[in-house]
């Protein structure tokens, strides 16, 4: 079951997920971003982990119409070896409404035991009532 973005409130937690950090996935990420593949043969590119943590969020919570990923913070705390399986936890740490826009800040933690990456994503989306008004 997916989560409705506009129903989220501070303190809400999304179901934890497991993420396999495979060599093929790393190569596909590097091919897409254009970063040299030979740099990352033993550990995963940290921003790839961040991208996959965001993907875990999107899997639980499809973004509503007009949503914008407006800001992002990352702390890369420890390298993650390719071949690892890590867990991803997601929590709402801020939620507010300003001028018809719902602003939600998610905190993600990723790791196997110890946290290897912590990230905060700010997502802003117009409230449905604001979208309706704009369409009139």
């Amino acid at each position: 079951m997916t989560v409705d973005f506009h129903s989220l409130r501070r303190g809400d937690r999304l179901p934890p997920t497991l993420l396999s950090v495979g060599a093929a996935e790393v190569r596909a990420y590097l091919a897409a971003t254009g970063e040299p593949e030979e740099r990352w043969t033993a550990i995963a590119p940290p921003l790839a982990l961040g991208a996959w943590a965001i993907a875990a969020l999107l899997a639980e919570m499809p973004l509503p119409q007009g949503a914008v990923h407006s800001a992002q913070e990352f702390e890369f705390l420890a390298p993650v070896p390719i071949g690892s399986v890590v867990s991803v936890t997601l929590q709402v740490v801020q939620q507010s409404v300003r001028q018809g826009t719902n602003i939600v800040v998610f905190e993600a933690e990723l790791g196997a035991g110890a946290t290897a990456l912590r990230g905060r994503a700010t997502v802003a989306a117009p409230l449905p009532v604001a979208l309706e008004a704009a369409a009139r």
Binding site: I43, P45, H69, S70, A71, E73, F74, E75, F76, L77
Partner: peptide, 15 residues
Amino acid sequence: FGERWAAGGTLKVRW
């Protein structure tokens, strides 16, 4: 920075 980036770097950005 090589692996130092993956084990201690931080980023804070706004689009």
